[in-house]
Design a protein around this nucleic acid. Structure first.
Lengths: 259, 259
DNA sequence: ATATGCATGTCGCAC
DNA sequence: GTGCGACGTGCATAT
C-alpha cells in the first residue's frame, strides 16, 4: 500500500504519516524543516530544505542536500513516533530510552511525502573484511610467510584476544595482529600489548607480526622501537584465496552428492 | 525546479535522472533494485525494495527498509554518475577515484522518483562534544577538581598530544585525558602512555587523571594497575558552563559597544 | 597527501 | 546489560 502526497497541507500530512507509523511503512518526506535534538548531546538545526526518512524499525535520518552523513538521526531501537499539526506546521517527535534521547522535526512546508510498505528479502554479501583475511591466512598460511603454522585463532591472553597465534618455520612463536587497511599507531600498540603478555607467559622467543596491506611511516618507527615486524598482506588476494577455497568446497560437495 | 514521477518507465526515469545529475539536483528513488560495489571491498546485494538518495555533491545512499546505516553508499567527493536503460531496467553507475571504487544500481522497478533543487542555508550547532568538555574545564577547572590549575592544552609530548596538563592544589603535576562517554581500556592505555612520558621528563610526582562521565569496570582495574585516577566529569554540566560563559561574554560585548 | 583521533558514531559478538 | 573492536567507517585537523 503506497501513499504519495505532493505539497500536502500539514493536516493531510499528519494523517498519512501517523497511519504510516501505525503500519510501520517507510516514510520519505522532502520539505523545509528545522530540527532539535536532545540526548547524548544537544543540537539545533535552523530551517532549510531536507530529506527525512523514517524506516520500519523506527530508524530516522535527516539529510541535507549534500554530504554523506545525516545531519540528525535516531537509530531504530526502542523509538516511539508521533506527528501532529501545530500552527500550520507538522511536528514529528521521536523519543527513545536507553540512551535517553529525543528529536523534533518541524516542517514549515512539505514538498513530497511517500509512505510505502517495502519488501526487501535481498541477500547482502561482503568480501575483503578483516574476518576474511583471518580465514584466508588460516586456510593458506603462506599468505603471511612461508612455513608459518597457525596454532589458534582469537586466543585469549591477559589484555584481550590475539588475532592469530602460531609458529614460524624456525619454531619461533608468532603473535599476529591483522589489519585490513593501512595500520597506524593503535594497531602497533595493540600488538605490543599482546606480545608482552605472551613473552611473559611463554618463556621463549616471540615474534610480533603486524599483517596489513600497508603501515603508516610513524607507526613503522614505533614498530621498530618495540622490536616488532610488519608483513605485507593483500586483502584482495585473501578474498581470492577464500573464493577459490569456496569453489573447491562446493565442487567436493556436489561430487559427494553425485555418488 | 521539481520533477516527481510515479511508476515511470525505465526510459522516463533515465531522462529525468540524467537531467537531475546535470543540474546537481537531489534525487530520491524508491524501487526494486540490486546493488554491486567494488573498491575498498566488494559487495553484492540481491534484488529488493529500497530507497536511494543521490545528493548535490554526488553522495549516494542506498537504504533498506530498516536499520540506521545505508547498506551501500558512496561519499560525495570526486564521483561521476551515469544512468542508462538496459533491458527495461535502469542502471545507475557511480565511479570515484581515490579511493578507486564504483557502485552499480540496477532498478527492476521504480515506484517513485523525485528530483528537487533543495535550498538549505540552515545553521547547525551542537553542544556536549569532547571539545566542549576541554573548553569547559579550562574555563572552570573546578569542574575537574577543586584547586586545579591548567597550564596547557593539547600539549605535545613524545607519543602524541595530552588533552590537558596542569597542577593540582598541592602543586603536583596533572596529566588529564578527557572522554565524553564511558572510558574503556584504550582511554586508560592512552593516559598511561602520556603519563610515562611526562614522568620521565619532569623529575617529580605526576598524577594521571582520566576525566569522563563513567569508566568501564575492567578499565578501572587497569587504571589502578597503572596508578592512575578516575575523576567523574559530566559532559552536560560542561556544556552548561560553556553556555553561561557565552551568555556572559555576549553581555560584556554589548555592554562595551553601548558605551 | 598522510596521519591521527573524535563521533549523538553504529553494529555485532562475547561475557 | 556491558565491554570491546571492526567498519567499504566518515570527518576535521595538523603536519
Amino acid at each position: 500500500m503506497n501513499e504519495i502526497l505532493v505539497e500536502p497541507s500539514s493536516q493531510e500530512a499528519e494523517n498519512v504519516v501517523n497511519r504510516a507509523f501505525q503500519r510501520r511503512a517507510v516514510v520519505v518526506i522532502v520539505g523545509d524543516c528545522s530540527v532539535h535534538y536532545h540526548g547524548r548531546a544537544s543540537s539545533k538545526l535552523t530551517a532549510g530544505e531536507r530529506v527525512a526518512i523514517i524506516k520500519e524499525d523506527g530508524a530516522l535520518l535527516v539529510h541535507r542536500p549534500s554530504g554523506y552523513e545525516p545531519v540528525n538521526w535516531m537509530p531504530g531501537q526502542n523509538v516511539a513516533y508521533n506527528a501532529k499539526t501545530k500552527d500550520k506546521t507538522l511536528e514529528i517527535r521521536a523519543v527513545r530510552r536507553k540512551p535517553a534521547e529525543s528529536i523534533k522535526l518541524v516542517f514549515n512546508r512539505i514538498h513530497l511525502i511517500s509512505c510505502m510498505d517495502l519488501r526487501d528479502f535481498g541477500d547482502f554479501s561482503l568480501h575483503a573484511s578483516e574476518e576474511d583475511m583471518h580465514r584466508a591466512i588460516l586456510l593458506k598460511p603462506s599468505l603471511l610467510e612461508t612455513g608459518f603454522k597457525p596454532i589458534s585463532y582469537e586466543k585469549k591472553v591477559e589484555p584481550g584476544f590475539m588475532d592469530i597465534y602460531g609458529i614460524d618455520r624456525n619454531g619461533k612463536l608468532m603473535v599476529v595482529e591483522v589489519k585490513r587497511k593501512t595500520a597506524g599507531k593503535e594497531a602497533v600498540l595493540q600488538l605490543a600489548k599482546y606480545m608482552e603478555a605472551v613473552k611473559r607467559k611463554a618463556n621463549r622467543e616471540v615474534r610480533g607480526i603486524l599483517a596489513a596491506p600497508d603501515i603508516a611511516k610513524d607507526a613503522h618507527r614505533t614498530l621498530e622501537t618495540f622490536g616488532l615486524e610488519f608483513l605485507q598482506v593483500d586483502p584482495r588476494k585473501c578474498a581470492e584465496t577464500l573464493q577459490q577455497a569456496e569453489t573447491r568446497k562446493l565442487a567436493e560437495f556436489f561430487g559427494e552428492n553425485q555418488l
